[in-house]
Amino acid sequence: MGEVFVLGAIAGGIYGLFAVATVLVYRGSGVLNFAQGEVGTLGLFLAVWLINDHGMPWVVGALAAVVVTTAIGVLFERFVVRKMGDAPRVSVAVATVGLLLFVLSGELVRVGASPKSLPGPFSGNGWRIAGVVVSPTQALSLVVALGVGVALATLLRRTDFGLGVLAAAQDPSAAQLVGVPVNRVSAFVWGAGAGLSTVACLLVAPGLGAFAPGALGRLFLFGLAAAIVGGLTSLPGAFVGGLVVGLVEASSGRIFAESSLPGVKTLAVFILLLVTLLVRPHGLFGTRESRHG
């Protein structure tokens, strides 16, 4: 039981980070960005290149990865999302699918399909909690997840700009009329979403061992499920959703062995997602929407 909780919490922190990235973009422009996970993975390959191949310190490589992917998010917003104006939100989502495939196939061409690995920021054996070895990076990921949550909550609730972010998706034209810098808000959420996804990828990668292009797709999808379970519009909901998905994943892995039912964790999260959408489409903490996607 304790083991399930520790495993679930560690994974849940990562899903929470992915989910927060998703929620930010959704709140800021009413779209799901399907490319976030793969853009984060691109950041990983950049970090691998700088840290492993050029001997840069971990922090430098990680920072460069976050900066570059944030820039990709901002550029995509500037040259694609903004161009699409008030086109149906599904069309914008399809454009993010294009970005996902663009990054994925680009990685395959430039990096190749052979797996790479990235060290964590710290060495050390970690701690044993309830029978689970928690590595320093995993501990850090929980701290970062909490820190990001508090920082974002402060930014969004305590600053005018943050309130603008919260207002933007509900009614863009009304937000613009009352002086919300809608374009800056939009650029911010797409950039921050991409950057946060990269942070999540950087924190989860050392624990994965090796990864190839597309390998983090499943984790991102779990983050997406977490965002929907949490309610898509709620930042605390994103973290709670992450925890729920992490716990469902860990406990389903305990109940069924992978050998008897392959991919049982994916199956369990899929069922969680479906039940949420059919029984409570606005999730645990989301608001019922008036605007349709």
């Binding site: 399907f34 939100r89 599904v90 959408l277 489409p281 996607g293």
Partner: peptide
């Protein structure tokens, strides 16, 4: 019951 974005997910 669901609209486009959810269906995509």
């Amino acid at each position: 019951r669901l609209r486009g974005l959810y269906l995509a997910v």
